[in-house]
């Protein structure tokens, strides 16, 4: 088999990832098919959603996962995709209405009847989406899995390894979903735009501290990569320093890009408000989008 094809053989095949990824894509395309022309998202969101989901697949179900397990800096890249880049793209595409339209009618009817299930899910979801909890989870998970002893165990135990990667991906989706909530109201709490920018800054600072601490550490904190053998020969300290830089710079940049996206929402909403109500009183920012 050629090197190129070997790349696409999953290092650790996971039914859960396969079903989630292919299921999400199938639902989305079915949703697009079921959408009236007025409900269709533009090319941007479609490309963003597909790219986000495909990126998650590529870092967990290919040779990339092998390198992530046996090289610290690749592992940091994997988490950058799972926690920042891919969920960022997916949340920005606002796929929820399309995905909902993709669910077959009998299944939707079945869920519609389960009021208690929905009420529980909404309560749990809203609780997780409180600003303070969202921030603590976002930074806390990075810090938790990078605690050297815990990192060691997570890299040695298959189940823990998957829990780690899933927790990063799910939390990434929660966080960016909260940041990019706009348009038609769903169950996601709608925070003020200023609050969101502040939250992005709040999660950026600790990430810089964590990333810089790893980059400038004078000891090898993540011995597990030496213990298990590296994917290819690389000086342990170089590996750790590159990993620290990935935790630090691109991760912090995502906060900046996220803030720019939110500023754009803000400006658009302002313009829309002024157009609709040129002399009107100023409503609270972030609560201005009309139900369409």
């Amino acid at each position: 088999m050629s090197e190129f094809l070997v790349f696409f053989v999953p290092w650790e095949f996971s039914w859960l990832v396969q079903i989630s990824v292919w299921g999400a894509l199938l639902l989305y395309f079915n949703g697009l098919r079921n959408s009236a022309s007025g409900e269709l998202p533009g090319y941007g969101p479609v490309i963003g959603f597909v790219l986000g989901v495909v990126l998650m697949y590529l870092v967990t179900q290919t040779r990339f996962d092998y390198w992530s397990q046996y090289m610290f800096f690749v592992h940091r890249g994997q988490h950058l995709v799972l926690h920042h880049l891919a969920p960022f793209l997916i949340a920005l595409a606002m796929p929820a209405p399309v995905l909902a339209r993709g669910i077959p009618q009998p299944v939707r009817a079945w869920f519609a009847e389960r009021r208690r299930l929905r009420a529980t899910w909404v309560a749990v979801y809203r609780w997780l989406q409180q600003p303070a909890i969202a921030c603590v989870l976002f930074v806390g998970l990075i810090a938790f899995w990078l605690t050297p002893e815990i990192h060691f165990d997570a890299m040695l135990n298959v189940t823990l390894y998957w829990i780690m990667n899933w927790s990063m991906a799910l939390d990434g989706l929660l966080f960016w979903w909260l940041m990019f909530e706009h348009g038609k109201r769903g169950i996601t709490p709608r925070l003020g735009y200023g609050t969101r920018v502040l939250l992005l800054f709040a999660v950026m600072v600790p990430q810089i501290v964590i990333g810089a601490s790893i980059t400038f550490a004078d000891a090898n904190w993540f011995e597990v990569y030496a213990v298990c053998g590296r994917a290819w020969p690389l000086d342990p300290m170089t590996d750790q320093q590159i990993g620290g830089l990935i935790t630090w710079i691109p991760a912090a940049m995502m906060s900046v890009i996220g803030a720019l996206v939110i500023l754009r929402f803000w400006i658009y909403d302002d313009a829309a408000r002024h157009a609709a109500n040129p002399a009107g009183a100023e409503p609270e920012p972030g609560h201005t989008t009309q139900r369409s």
């Binding site: 092998y66 040695l156 298959v158 030496a226 213990v227 298990c228 053998g229 020969p233």
Partner: peptide
């Protein structure tokens, strides 16, 4: 046991390094 090993390129004399777990 979540470890790996790998081979380096062969040198001219046919010898090569092997990376392996250190524990």
């Amino acid at each position: 046991y979540r470890t790996t090993y790998g081979y380096e390129e062969r040198r001219e004399d046919g010898s090569y390094e092997v990376s392996h777990s250190s524990a």
